[in-house]
């Protein structure tokens, strides 16, 4: 999946990260908090802040010992909470670490690791309702993120 954009959701006072698959047939919205959205936005826009933000620090932490993020996977959706896994390699071993999708995505964008979503997650989202909701949003709502 690719991060297609970030939008503000005025109804929930939260931000939505829009993930799309490469052939644009599937879409996965993930609701995240303001600071998580801000971190993802900085990575999308390739902005280097004057001081390392938390996910830059997280990357430095892994870089310090040459641990590599291989991929991140959005694995489950349960009562509006998404679950993700970060897959790492370190010293010839592989590790899988439980994460929120927002952290996983913010880290993947900084480490150029691919983002995947399990098919069950995509099936689970009530897409019809969501598509309608998204259609009602104006194009100006996209890409807006005032941190």
């Amino acid at each position: 999946m690719q991060v297609k954009g970030l939008m503000f959701d005025p109804y929930n006072n939260a931000y939505i990260v829009i993930l799309r698959d490469d052939d644009q047939s599937e879409m996965l919205p993930i609701w995240v908090g303001k600071s998580e959205a801000s971190s993802i936005s900085l990575a999308i826009e390739n902005v280097a802040p004057p001081r390392p933000m938390t996910h830059d620090f997280m990357k430095s932490y892994l870089d310090a010992f040459n641990a590599k993020v291989i991929s991140v996977v959005i694995t489950d959706l349960n009562e509006h909470t998404y679950f993700a896994k970060v897959h790492l390699t370190y010293a010839d071993s592989e590790y899988t670490v439980d994460s929120r999708p927002s952290d996983a995505i913010a880290l993947a964008l900084r480490t150029e690791a691919p983002i995947f979503a399990s098919e069950s997650v995509i099936r689970k989202q009530s897409s019809e309702e969501l598509d309608q909701w998204l259609e009602n949003l104006k194009p100006e709502d996209f890409g807006k993120l005032d941190s």
Binding site: T54, Y61, A67, V86, Y95, D98, S99, R100, D103
Partner: peptide, 15 residues
């Protein structure tokens, strides 16, 4: 759910 610094701690525990 694990917050960002919990995740970093978790990386440390795994690695």
């Amino acid at each position: 759910r694990p917050m960002s610094h919990d995740l970093i701690k978790s990386f440390g525990e795994h690695l």
